[in-house]
């Protein structure tokens, strides 16, 4: 493609100025500062005191950090695959122009639209209460349910369910990918007498791998940063017994309730490193299974 080369060199920077300033003021400088804070003890009131690696050592031995990592990894490892599998299955169903498909798609997308809101988190808290709707429905079939939110064994699973429930937005991305697959492939498969399942695994899925990859990366990055549901459902504490203590919630508690800004900064950098490592691994693995149609 031909590049548009008729602007004066400074004009590019003129248009980029807001972004450049924003990058420096709100991203680059804060990141450097937070890296510095992570090596200090800092309570906002007195000035930061250099403590070297102390925060990181404390963090490595903090049982609540271990717990919150366990909670967050469970949330990601169970929530993301199920969410994406549902998204893919329904995208395949909705790819065809069956009557009413637009309305179906809209309904399946609704949870994604509302899912991040405080209102839905409040609703969730009620649904899985002792007297909540889920138990009312269970009692119709003679099962007496427990208080799912208050039990440390089940509280996290209600949050995972809330994540899976929002499969609408990866579904739309998959739909976009499916629409791009040339019908020629399917015609050829039909002539060769391939079965529907075979067509899916040998044509649809390989051609869709770039979308699958994009969805996996974005969903994982977002899931690691989930906060609202855990905060609202646990009342801001990670209760019961830290079973819904998301990593970001613990960071919030440390930074904005205990005002241990140095420690919270160290937590933030550990989160960054975890996300960076996972993303890097995914990009490395991608070479083995993501198929780019050149």
């Amino acid at each position: 493609m031909k590049k548009y080369k008729f602007n004066r060199p400074w004009e590019g920077y003129a248009f980029l100025t807001p972004w450049l300033l924003g990058f420096l003021l709100f991203t680059a400088i804060p990141m450097v500062l937070s890296l510095y804070f992570s090596f200090t003890q800092y309570d906002v009131v007195t000035s930061p005191k250099w403590v070297g690696l102390e925060n990181y050592i404390e963090l490595a031995n903090d049982p609540r950090v271990h717990k919150s990592l366990q909670v967050t990894f469970t949330y990601v490892a169970l929530g993301v695959p199920f969410q994406l599998i549902f998204a893919l299955l329904l995208a395949v169903v909705f790819k065809n122009d069956i009557p009413g498909v637009r309305i179906y798609r809209a309904i399946y997308y609704l949870p994604s639209l509302f899912g991040g809101s405080v209102a839905v988190a409040i609703l969730w808290r009620q649904l899985f209460n002792k007297e909540g709707v889920v138990n009312q429905l269970l009692s119709l079939v003679g099962i007496e349910g427990q208080n799912w939110i208050a039990s440390p064994d089940t509280a996290l699973y209600t949050l995972i369910l809330l994540l899976i429930w929002q499969f609408g937005s990866p579904m739309v991305i998959f739909l976009g990918g499916l629409k791009q697959i040339s019908p020629d492939y399917y015609e050829a498969a039909e002539i060769d007498g391939a079965s529907k399942v075979g067509t899916f695994f040998h044509i649809t899925l390989p051609l869709l791998t770039p979308m699958v990859f994009f969805n996996i990366v974005m969903t994982i990055i977002n899931a690691f940063q989930a906060f609202t549901p855990s905060y609202i459902i646990s009342g801001g504490t990670g209760a019961p017994v830290d079973s819904t203590l998301f990593y970001t919630l613990y960071l919030y508690i440390k930074g904005f309730q205990h005002f241990s800004m140095g420690y919270a900064s160290a937590l933030a950098w550990v989160l960054l490193i975890i996300i960076a490592i996972i993303t890097a691994i995914m990009f490395l693995l991608a070479r083995k299974w993501v198929y780019y149609d050149e």
Binding site: W19, F23, F26, T27, I29, P30, M31, L33, S34, L35, F37, V44, V217, I221, F224, Q225, T248, L251, G255, F256, M261, A264, S265, L267, A268, W269, L271, L272, I275, A276, T279
Partner: peptide
């Protein structure tokens, strides 16, 4: 710019707040 898309905002949160 593309890399900043993937950064968790928590690494800028505390200095910004301060």
């Amino acid at each position: 710019m593309l890399v900043t898309l993937m950064l968790p905002f928590h690494v800028k949160l505390i200095p910004q707040y301060i």
